[in-house]
Amino acid sequence: MGTITERRLKDGSIVYTAQVRIMRDGKKASASSSFDRRPAAEAWLKRKAAELKKPGGFEQLSRIKGNGATLADAINEYLKTSTRKIGKTKGQVLAAIKNHDIAAMSCEQITSKDIVAFAQFLNAGGRQPQTAANYLSHLSAIFAIAAPAWNMKLNSVEMDAAVAVCRRLGLTAKSKKRERRPTIDEMDRIMAYFEEQARRRGSMPMHMICAFALFSSRRQEEITSLRWEDLEPGRVLVRDMKHPGEKDGNNIWVDLPPEAERIIDAMMTRDCERIFPYNHRSISTNFTRATKVTGIADLNFHDLRHEGVSRQFEMGRTIPQAASVSGHRSWQSLQRYTHLRTTGDKWAGWSWLDAITRKSGGVARQ
Results as ranks from 00 to 15, higher is better:
K153P: 14
S137T: 09
G170V: 11
A161K: 04
M159H: 09
K153H: 13
V163G: 09
T172Y: 07
A149V: 00
A146I: 04
L171S: 13
D160G: 06
L136E: 02
A162Q: 03
S140R: 05
V157W: 10
S156I: 10
L136W: 02
T172L: 02
P148E: 15
I145T: 14
L139C: 01
A149G: 00
M159I: 09
R167W: 03
I145W: 07
V165A: 05
M152I: 08
A161H: 04
M159K: 06
H138T: 05
V165W: 04
I145M: 06
S140M: 05
E158Q: 15
A141E: 09
T172G: 09
P148S: 15
H138W: 04
A149F: 10
A161D: 03
K153C: 11
V163P: 07
S156F: 09
G170Y: 06
A147L: 15
D160L: 09
N151C: 09
A161F: 00
R167G: 03
R168Y: 01
K153M: 09
A147Y: 15
S140W: 05
M152N: 08
M152T: 12
L169T: 07
D160S: 11
A141D: 03
I142L: 04
I142T: 02
C166R: 03
N155I: 15
L169G: 05
A161Q: 06
M152A: 10
A146L: 04
R168H: 10
V157D: 11
K153I: 14
W150K: 11
L136S: 04
S156K: 15
M159N: 12
L171V: 13
W150Y: 07
G170W: 11
N151G: 10
A162Y: 05
L139A: 05
W150P: 02
R167K: 06
A144N: 08
A147E: 15
A149S: 11
L169Q: 05
I145Q: 10
S137E: 13
V163N: 10
L169R: 12
A149M: 12
L154T: 03
K153D: 10
I142W: 01
N151D: 15
A162T: 07
L154I: 04
S140E: 08
I142M: 01
R168F: 00
M159G: 03
P148C: 09
C166T: 03
W150R: 08
A149I: 06
V163R: 10
T172C: 10
A144P: 00
A146D: 00
T172Q: 02
V163M: 01
K153T: 10
R167T: 09
M159V: 07
T172P: 12
L139H: 03
V165T: 06
L171I: 15
H138M: 05
M152Q: 14
V165H: 02
A144K: 12
